[in-house]
Design a protein around this nucleic acid. Structure first.
Lengths: 251, 251
DNA sequence: ATAGATTGTCCACTAATAGTGGACAGCTGT
DNA sequence: ACAGCTGTCCACTATTAGTGGACAATCTAT
């Protein structure tokens, strides 16, 4: 899937490398790119002008950056997910009912990507925002997705992503294995500051009426907003019933 | 800018064509692509597996579709816009104050792209949503952007986009020219069902304290929610003051 | 305004490869 | 079992991606 080995069309790969460098530096100049990538200046310039001409890159003064084409394509792609179209309204309701941020997530290419977050009122910068990619091993939605797969596949799924601890609370692989077992019987997964300090999360997998896995639904909040009976019972109850509502509307 | 003529790196162009076909059909099979594009089956398959390996495309059963990588990159790119980071909260406030949907838009590559929409409460599907691309000549934010440019550049900007009428109310180019003049003196632009029937919109350009154009702010609603004194005075007043607040925070 | 740095463009050259068409195995769903 | 489509491989050739260097154009800061 995300196999290594050079792709068949190598020119596309080098354009990809140029793009990657631009993206995760937030904008680079030609000279910077020549320095970072192992290609001649003319070659990089050719790729830059190709990407610019095709609309993927924009030149701001001297620096090149990714264009808003990606946002356009991304939001278009999002509407192809039934989980998004059906689940958005339910995420809003869940957010209102709990006072927490509620997110829809999809498992694709071995990655967990957030399709949509209904932010809690007053929260301008939720921990999980639209477009964010979350680790599988230390987040509630990640565990919910893992638990929805056959146990023998789990280690393969984990090898794709990093398994590095994110906080001092991140579970070890052995702990995780036990946790997944209880997630399967319990029906929901939790994350107690295992990903980000001060952040707790509760999640459940979302399947359609045929049992096909569509993704996950989760609520996120600070540890003090998510504790005690609320954390153990009330919120999970609301979460599960939201997931069931979505399930009945899928397909 | 969006100049024609083949880009220097042609393999990237053909990958681009494959991607385009996939995107605006919402997913295609190999056979379909071979039929639509003028390339051999092996070649298209090579591009498909390259794009898949690099993470831009995903195979669902037999059909290829764009991946959520675009959403990830798109939302990352969005955070590089000061207008987004500063304006989001103001758009929320404006939406609450007016009961309408409020959007932030940016002019890039001759296109007007919506960075963010704060939907009116109860509206699940706003007319202008995040990632949407709007025409310049028949929308309020489009006119606001056009009016922010020197008059002699306007026709060049319009030639990039289509100038086709969208509804029976769409202004002719001559009417538009006069309108832009009054937008410049008045400070805001309107759209009376010129783009979508039943939809009205009011917009203003947003500049920073140095006069640099960052984009536009607009509110959108149904014609019955946007009429009379509200449409002529109240809403424009709120809009302009929101824009001034944003301006003072930019830079 | 001027100087220094960076970028856009062009060129000649070569090793590399994108693209073709066909063949065959593997998978999928009827 | 069968038909249809996909993944993979192959040999071949015209094309081209990539190199390095040169010069003009453009931008930036003094």
């Amino acid at each position: 899937m995300t196999a290594d080995g050079d792709p068949p069309v190598k020119a596309v790969q080098t354009s990809h490398r140029v793009l990657e460098a631009i993206i995760d530096s937030g904008g680079m100049t030609l000279a910077d790119l020549v320095e970072r990538l192992e290609h001649s200046r003319s070659s990089i310039h050719n790729h830059l002008s190709t990407l610019t001409q095709l609309g993927y890159v924009v030149k701001d003064g001297q620096t090149y950056r990714a264009s808003l084409r990606f946002l356009e394509i991304g939001t278009t792609t999002r509407t192809r997910f039934a989980l998004y179209n059906v689940g958005r309204a339910h995420a809003e309701n869940l957010s209102n009912a709990t006072g927490l941020s509620a997110s829809l997530l999809v498992f694709e290419r071995g990655q967990l990507t957030c399709l949509y977050t209904a932010p809690a009122t007053g929260v301008d910068d939720p921990a999980v925002a639209t477009g964010d990619v979350l680790p599988l091993h230390c987040t509630a939605p990640g565990k919910a997705i893992l638990a929805a797969h056959p146990p023998e596949e789990v280690s393969a799924l984990l090898s794709e992503s990093e398994r590095a601890p994110c906080t001092e609370n991140t579970q070890t692989t052995a702990e995780l294995r036990e946790t997944l077992e209880s997630v399967r019987t319990q029906g929901w997964a939790v994350d107690r500051e295992e990903w980000r300090t001060g952040i707790r999360c509760i999640a459940t997998a979302v399947t359609d009426t045929n049992g096909r896995l569509h993704g996950a639904l989760c609520v996120t909040g600070s540890t003090d907003a998510l504790s005690g009976k609320r954390f153990e019972q009330d919120i999970p109850g609301l979460l599960i019933s939201s997931a069931h509502e979505i399930q009945s509307e899928l397909e």
